[in-house]
Amino acid sequence: MESAPNYSAEHEGYVGVSTLETDVLWKQEYGLAAPGAELGADTNRRGMRRWMASASWCGYS
């Protein structure tokens, strides 16, 4: 069985925060110029790829 992810203190700050809220925080923190909708779509796309890559352990691949 695979062990639970090791979340750093930085990641813990995003637990329970929506993708949209995270994108707003990143725009402010990192000075990103991309529109919110573009950031959200990219964040969701990357998250889905990560989920699909890790889902094999639970029979979803």
Rank of each mutant, 00 (worst) to 15 (best):
V17P: 02
N44E: 15
L39N: 02
L32K: 02
L39A: 06
Y30C: 06
S18H: 08
V24T: 01
E21L: 01
P35C: 01
V15T: 12
M52F: 12
A41N: 08
Y14S: 10
Y14E: 12
G16Q: 12
W57G: 13
Y60H: 13
L32P: 02
Q28T: 09
Q28A: 15
M48N: 10
E12D: 09
H11W: 09
A55H: 08
W51A: 01
T19M: 08
V24I: 11
A53S: 14
E10V: 06
A41W: 00
R45C: 03
N6I: 03
H11V: 09
W57R: 15
R49K: 12
S56Y: 13
S61G: 14
G59T: 06
A33P: 00
A55F: 00
T43L: 07
K27L: 01
N6L: 01
E10D: 06
P5L: 07
S56R: 10
T22M: 07
K27E: 01
G31C: 02
G31N: 05
T19C: 11
R49L: 03
M1Q: 06
L25Q: 14
W26T: 07
S54D: 11
M52Y: 11
E2P: 11
E2K: 10
G59F: 07
A53E: 14
L25A: 15
M52D: 09
P35T: 03
M1K: 04
G47K: 06
R46I: 09
L39H: 00
P35K: 03
R50K: 09
S56Q: 08
L20C: 09
S61V: 13
R45K: 12
R45W: 02
R46T: 10
A37T: 08
A41I: 05
W51L: 09
D42V: 05
T43E: 04
E29T: 10
G47D: 04
E29N: 07
E21M: 01
K27P: 02
N44L: 12
G16W: 14
A9H: 10
E2V: 05
A55R: 13
W51P: 00
E12Q: 12
K27A: 05
A53V: 10
G31Y: 01
V15E: 13
D42K: 15
G13C: 04
L20R: 14
E2A: 11
E2R: 07
N44V: 14
G40Y: 05
W51N: 11
E38T: 14
T43W: 05
H11E: 13
A37I: 08
D42C: 06
M52L: 07
S8N: 06
G36Q: 04
V15F: 15
A55Y: 03
S3M: 06
P35V: 00
G59H: 09
W26H: 09
A33H: 00
W57H: 15
E10N: 09
P5I: 06
R50P: 03
N44R: 15
H11S: 11
V17L: 08
S8M: 01
P5W: 09
Q28V: 08
P35W: 00
A9V: 12
A53H: 11
L20V: 14
E10T: 05
